[in-house]
Each structure stands twice: as structure tokens, then as C-alpha cells.
Computed example of a mutant assay.
Amino acid sequence: MSNTIIDTNFNFPGQQEVYKGKVREVYRLENDVLVMVATDRLSAFDVVMPKGIPYKGQILNQIATKMMADTADIVPNWLTATPDPNVAVGYACEPFKVEMVIRGYMSGHAAREYKAGKRVLCGVAMPEGMKENDKFPEPILTPATKAEMGDHDEDISREDILKRGIVSEEDYLILEEYTKALFQRGTEIAAKRGLILVDTKYEFGKTSDGKIVLIDEIHTPDSSRYFYADGYQERQAKGEAQKQLSKEFVRQWLISNNFQGLEGQTVPEMTDEYITSVSERYIELYENITGEKFVKADISDIQRRIETNVLSHLNGK
């Protein structure tokens, strides 16, 4: 599995600094330009897995690019160009130190907390008598503090965000409004594909002139959970697991192999066969979410391809 991009070390013209997240590597250039490279790293339970997944970075970048184009009329975003399948270029922003998580259904982390007996998540009450994957009466906002690589994101309430001064009240009201509008649009897009947008997260930043914009990824299988709409009600009525389109299948595989990112636990071995199956699943996700056939990029020398394409863009060619 050598044809994956796990790490980068580019030196672009006017480069000022590099930030390496769990999956993306962000190069800040002069004139407030950001070059964001989506790697093939796989993160689950806030832990980066030791091996990359072929085409994963391309898939995430291309879904995010398409979804930003499909939501630009309701929420401004940072994106200006995509010169390479794995690369997005846009405005440098000061990120807000919270992830805006919104949940339409009681799944994933919310379901695990509910099962443990909790009825309040991030200061928001969850109704009694719910089953896993039931729809909430209204989508709930459950923000999380943004973690550095290797650290865990932490649930946080709106009240604590404001009390600790992480975001001003004026800005937070805008983040809430944008989050709800994006989730509504994402729900509509998903429905056209026969999908249910279950939950997702959005990240926002502020440009140098003070404008709040959407940054990072949007409605990808890494940041979102989808169910197939067909058969959803029947499966819920029978207490069966929902058919999902998300990274949850990786989390469940890890859980079944005794790993949830807890201290003392070891990441299970990821065989080439398993990695190939994950890659194929991500391609399936891409095609279902976008409704388009996935076209594999040339991965014979990804680093050189990216560098050539980015330099060509920066040089205006």
C-alpha cells in the first residue's frame, strides 16, 4: 500500500508555516493564502491509524469541494480553487476553537452516551424513551472543543463556550445559524440521493477582514454519518442496525477488536486486504453521496503530482 499519501513536506513559494491535523496538512502562504492537502490518513476515536487508505484524501477533498459549491449561496466559505484532486486552496482564516456538531438522530457518540444513562449532552436534553438511531424531535447542537493531533475532542455546552470566552456571543449566534442552515441543505441534498444525513460537524473561521466563513470539510463520510433512507423505518421498528454510509464501519471494526482509543489499548493490525476493503467502501460512499462515478487519480507519484499542480496554480498557469 505504498501508493498513499501519509505525510507531506512541501516548500511552496511564500510559505510561512505548516499545520498538520489528523487528516489534513495546511500550508499558509503569504497574502493570506492557504493550501490544504487531504492526506490518506485514517483517524478514528481521535487516533490516527498507522496505515493510509488509497484514494481517501481525494474522496474527502472532492466531496467537500462539491458540497461547498452546493451551499455557497447560504453560507460563505474559504475555498477559491482545487488545483489537484487532493488539494484545496483558499483564504487563510483564524479558526474558531470549537467544532459545531449537529445531530438529527440519536446515533454514534450520542447513542453511546444515552446508553450509559446520560440524558443531557452538551447542555442539551435528550428525550426519554429513545432507541438508538431514532430521530430527534428537532436537530440538536452538541459542540466539541477542537483537539490537536492525538488528543480527544471534548463535548462542551454553549454556556461553557461563552463563559470561557472561547467564542463571543455575537459570533456564536452566527455559528449556530450557519450550522442549522447547512444541516438543512445537507439533509435536502442527501434526500435526493436516497440518504438520510444523520449527524455532521462544521468548522468555521474568520477572515482577516472579520468575515465568518465555513472552512475544512463538509458532508464527507469522515465528518458526517448517513443512513440509507430505503428501509429506515422498517429497520427501526424491528430493532435492526441501520445501513450506514459513514466512517462508523471503521469504528465498529476497531471496537470489535478491542480498541476505542483508550489508554493502554493497541490499534489492531490492518492487513492489506482490510485496507483495500476500506478504500472500496470510501469509493462507494463517494458515489452514493455525490451521485457521480468516482474517477481514480494517478497515484504512481502522488507527492510529485500534488507539487506540480499546486505550483502551476500558484504561478497562474
Score class of each variant (00 low, 15 high):
Gln252Gly: 01
Tyr226Asp: 09
Lys238Met: 07
Gln303Asn: 11
Asn77Gly: 07
Pro268Ser: 06
Val37Asn: 01
Glu148Met: 06
Ile53Lys: 01
Val35Gln: 03
Asp40Arg: 08
Glu292Cys: 07
Thr276Gly: 01
Met149Val: 15
Lys66Asn: 10
Arg251Gln: 11
Asp153Tyr: 05
Asn3Gly: 06
Asp171Thr: 07
Val278Arg: 10
Arg305Val: 00
Ala297Gly: 15
Glu177His: 10
Arg281Tyr: 03
Pro221Asp: 15
Ile306Thr: 09
Lys146Trp: 03
His219Asp: 08
Glu154His: 06
Arg164Met: 09
Glu269Leu: 14
Lys163Trp: 00
Arg119Asp: 01
Lys97Glu: 14
Tyr114Phe: 11
Glu240Trp: 09
Thr8Tyr: 01
Leu262Ala: 05
Val35Thr: 06
Ile289Pro: 11
Tyr55Leu: 02
Ile166Arg: 05
Gly90Pro: 08
Pro83Ala: 11
Gln58Asn: 14
Gly123Arg: 01
Phe96Ser: 11
Ile5Ser: 13
Pro50Cys: 12
His109Cys: 03
Val167Arg: 06
Asp134Phe: 10
Glu217Thr: 00
Glu203Arg: 11
Cys93His: 05
Gly14Gln: 13
Thr4Ser: 13
Ala229Phe: 03
Gly150Leu: 08
Ala111Phe: 10
Lys163Pro: 01
Val47His: 07
Glu287Phe: 04
Glu154Tyr: 03
Pro76Met: 00
Val89Ile: 15
Gly264Pro: 05
Val98Ser: 04
Asp155His: 03
Val35Glu: 04
Ser223Phe: 11
Glu307Tyr: 04
Asn288Phe: 11
Lys146Arg: 08
Thr179Val: 12
Glu273Cys: 14
Arg235Leu: 05
Glu159Pro: 02
Asp32Ala: 12
Pro268Gln: 09
Thr290Lys: 01
Tyr228Ile: 12
Lys22Phe: 09
Ser107Pro: 05
Val18Tyr: 14
Ile218Lys: 03
Met270Lys: 11
Gly291Cys: 06
Ala144Val: 07
Glu273Ala: 14
Ile74Cys: 04
Gly104Ala: 12
Arg112Asp: 06
Phe45Gly: 05
